[in-house]
Design a protein around this nucleic acid. Structure first.
Lengths: 199, 199, 199, 199
DNA sequence: TTCTAATCGAGACGGTACGTCCCGTCTTGCC
DNA sequence: GGCAAGACGGGACGTACCGTCTCGATTAGAA
């Protein structure tokens, strides 16, 4: 959260206004997408002066990044613990699918990805707050499976995690195809086989 | 190529100008990225009037899409035919990696993806000219393996092709990690196992 | 003075704050001029909240007008009474020169003049509190001269007063030229001749 | 005239647009006055983009100064030559009155005067283009009268010119009183007497 | 070779959004 | 209740691009 909070004496950013801005932003994003989103439209829809936006975020970029961060950060999927690798895998895929398929995410993430290579600060934040923790959940799941004897210790963890998330992102962000439960069932089987093959 | 060609009169879009624009565009893309790219900067860098751009493409969007199309179209990877599924797979991965890792592609594709859901025309073009043909190569490779008896006929072709391309895109566009030959070797093994598991 | 004074409750506009504001305003005026003067800068320089300003004056306009009124009001020049028209005239010119040449006045008056035609309330105040009393002093001086037999009764009082003040204002506000004593001597002679010519 | 004019090759500021802006500005000035005038309102009224204004003038200040300069510069009153000082004087007063009483002038000049002491560049321009030439006309008229033997050579030219213009400006800009022909007749008599008294 | 029509560079045009600054009001918590 | 601090809605500032348009000045195919 980038939002400043005064510590003493003076005025303070009012939460009602912040909420109005955030809702308006999501509404505009849904209507226009990131590239066409304008701060003026957000302010107008929120019934707020532009300055109220710039008091909270230093630019359009930063505001958007912060909103995605929020939308995604407090919904870190719990490490599944069904006791079996295959069902853990299936459960995690389901949770990731739910997050990735959320319209805000599907709409904004591609544009953030596009910005990553031109805005290192953004890249760091996304890595630290979004990608890292999710990756860690996958790593944890694999580690548990290894300890349980469900997977051999030689499994290629990095590749495994890639295989876990890449097809989901690909379908949602690139092909736009749906990820229904049946697809996830098949995907879980395929990923399990792939992971075992990397050992 | 979208470029119009006059049929009479004595004046034609001059190729030297077109070339200057294309080079300038790639240079600007490398320097700024898609989102920050401006037609005015391209024209300036190319030493060309803005009208010269709009005589060739009807908008910034279309120009960029067209350039990516060109950059990618004449480099459709040949269907591999080593005689074995595993080595076909490895070869195709290598070719795709080379294309996807090209800086122009890595720079522009994410921004085009971001536009897809707001510009159906762009989505169609990308699907028809970029994604479709590449997908077809993968489908062809799988079909050959089936005919050869290398894979069972029940293999899930769509999922297989997803697994083929998704991890590559993910590494190049999202994590920014390198895809060296060793990685591709492991990936090929993993994907093969996954594909067989979908049968 | 427009400043309200609370009569009950336990809180009163604190004079120290008022003084700080007034000094800060004069300092800012000197530094920026009226047009560029901002209430925020005044508050900042005075170490005071903006509300402290608006508790005392209802707007920037009114604050400035009030300050000029103060700067000028308690310095109404006394009607000269040397016993002779010419020396009365010279004395009054000297007093007016001293007032008009004061930096606050020279700085603020032109901008107030510029506002007059768009702010009738301001025009009234300036007329009643600033111009009127001064004009009256001149009228009084002329009347005394007439009674004394120093001037004929047919003298054009309005024009005479114009001639008295206009050249001073002109030099100070328009040309920026100095009004030294020698100039005033010559001017007194000229104005006397002009006044007598209007009879 | 500050307006740039391209000399070769490219596009050129279009006179129709310039005219529309100038008219719109005068209309807005009449409606709001200088201080309340906004570039956005001018652009709106002229049916023009803001950029069209800033292509011609670098700021609101400069635009206004330039417009006044134009409005006044090409209307330099001709040196009167009736053959007699008194009637020359009366004629010149009439011409000056007509110029000074023009609404544009009456509206804008006070604000320019207010800016003079904070914008030396503006002061120079106004001096060179507006005040100087008019002063010169007065000086010329006096010189002719001296040569003709109508005035003694010892006349105080500077003071005389001040007396010529100051009362007019005072009435129009400060008191807002009218300057009808009768007033000018009396004023001419008064000024003549004053001028002769300075000899 | 001459005609002629579209292209060329330059950049002005009407717009829209940017991010900043200030106005006059309101809110918070301290005195 | 005044006070310092400063957030609030509003609106103008001056800038940067968008995609279109208007200039003369090339430039090359058709006559």
């Amino acid at each position: 959260m980038t939002v400043r909070r005064a510590t003493s004496g003076g005025a303070v950013l009012r939460p009602r206004v912040t909420e109005a801005i955030v809702s308006a932003t999501f509404a505009e994003l849904a209507a226009c997408g990131y590239a066409r989103l304008s701060m003026e439209a957000v302010a107008r829809r929120a019934g707020v002066g532009k300055a109220a936006l710039y008091r909270r975020w230093s630019s359009k970029q930063e505001m958007l990044a912060d909103l995605v961060r929020q939308a995604v950060a407090d919904t870190l999927p719990p490490a599944p613990s069904t006791g079996a690798f295959r069902s853990d895998l299936r459960e995690l895929l389901g949770e990731l699918r739910d997050q990735v398929a959320a319209p805000v995410v599907a709409d904004v993430v591609p544009t953030l990805l596009a910005e990553l290579r031109h805005t290192p600060a953004l890249a760091e934040v996304m890595q630290a707050d979004v990608a890292g923790p999710r990756r860690e959940v996958g790593v944890e799941m694999l580690r548990a499976a290894v300890e349980r004897g469900d997977l051999p210790p030689s499994v290629d963890v990095d590749l495994a995690v890639d295989l876990l998330i890449a097809p989901l992102l690909f379908r949602v962000l690139v092909t736009g195809a749906a990820c229904d439960d049946a697809y996830l069932d098949t995907l879980a089987a395929a990923v399990e086989a792939a992971v075992r093959a990397t050992a």
